[in-house]
Design a protein around this nucleic acid. Structure first.
Lengths: 229, 229
DNA sequence: CGAATACTTGAAATTATTCAAGGGCCGTGG
DNA sequence: CCACGGCCCTTGAATAATTTCAAGTATTCG
């Protein structure tokens, strides 16, 4: 199946509000990019190639500490974007990006995108709204990491990620990626999952799915209202 | 001295690039707001009143954990803004704001601001650039908190904040505010300052100023290349 | 002068990390 | 087909970093 840029951009909430004409302009500038599993898409400090819109696959965007520790800013799946901020603001990539699965993206190159933003007001508005959502997400993540302990962070993640009716949450391919996202070591992550499991709040549904059994208590843990488990 | 909105907006980098006509529109919608020291400007969850531009004084924007712990997202001084994201994106205030000194702001109310953004492309572009800078700052802060230890965080803060030629850094009025910003208790903050002082990397210049004596070593600590002090 | 507030410092407690080892899964190659 | 190595997750024990608790000092303000 040959992916086409229009289809990829169509699935992206960030471009949902923009009028057809602007959208067409985006489609015409977009390029398809494919990345094998494990392939580095860009490195921190690289000039920003543009906005990547994931069509299929999964990408992790992460920072590296001098001591080698990684922190995953986000996992980007189909319909979501990364490197928007650098592309719009015109700075270098502030983090690394790597495909964790075979991935197809639409790339809106920096230069034409910026030109389009300068000329196209509705597009500009739409992208700005997208940016505010991203900021809000970032602030939430920060709040999480700073104000909650390990169990609180995991609980909040699970509650936020809960999508399916049965209260089942799909975990990223590698658990240690999630651990890193929540600023935990994979050991601590593992122990925390166990504590919640032993307390009867969650159970493992599938190999990489968790079922939430007691969202009320989970909420209390997320809010720090339960002393300890 | 009677502050005027034009003067306040003039000092704000966020509006530096926008053309005169757009600027005039902003000035005409702006209102002056004064806050006594200690006065709460808004609470988390309030509908967002608009973008605040600080003319004089100092504001802290912070989140609160259920257990009472606070995290200061940023200290906002003259020429800077807060609540931009909520105002532009149209959501409720994501944090609390409080004047830590007698403060005068220009307020650009949400409704007219959003209308202006919809109608005024250059203004929209300018605000968008401002947003990207804010995101970059946030990501940097996050990286700081997640990837560095106490000494590293302080060192990086000092290096970033260093403005005066003599390597003197002005601290916020209350040290515990800075501590909270760096996700440290004030005790840990105090001890960390002492460690850096004993190691000869900084010295207290004034009551709330620090002089950086060895920026090279500070940089190494910030980068985690110095095992311990 | 007395109360309040902020900062500093020490000692104890706690949380999370590091180090070390074991088990499970999978793909490769004999 | 099975053995082997590699990778990932789990678990336990020891370690380290930061927090918490508890004074003690300094400064300000009434």
């Amino acid at each position: 199946m040959e992916p086409n840029v229009g289809g990829i951009l169509d699935q992206c909430r960030l471009f949902a509000d923009i009028p057809l004409e602007s959208f067409g302009q985006l489609v015409s500038m977009a390029q398809i990019r494919r990345f094998a599993k494990g392939r580095r898409i860009f490195r921190e400090g690289d000039p920003c190639p543009g906005v990547f819109v994931v069509g299929s696959g999964l990408v992790r965007v992460f920072k590296t500490a001098p001591n080698g520790k990684e922190h995953i800013l986000h996992m980007v799946g189909p319909g979501n974007t990364f490197a928007e901020v650098a592309a719009i603001g015109g700075f270098d990539c502030p983090a690394h990006a790597e495909a964790v699965a075979p991935t197809v993206c639409a790339l809106l190159p920096t230069e034409p995108l910026q030109r389009a933003l300068r000329e196209d007001h509705p597009l500009c508005l739409g992208m700005m709204t997208g940016l505010t959502l991203w900021v809000r997400h970032l602030v939430g993540l920060m709040e999480d990491i700073v104000l909650r302990d390990a169990a609180g962070r995991l609980a909040r993640y699970l509650l936020d990620a809960q999508t399916t009716p049965g209260g089942v949450v799909e975990l990223p391919t590698l658990r240690r990626h999630l651990a890193s996202h929540l600023n935990l070591t994979s050991e601590t992550f593992s122990r925390t999952v166990r504590r919640l499991t032993d307390a009867g709040l969650i159970e493992s549904a599938d190999d990489n799915r968790l079922r939430l059994l007691d969202t009320e208590k989970l909420r209390m843990i997320a809010e720090g209202e339960l002393p300890r488990i």
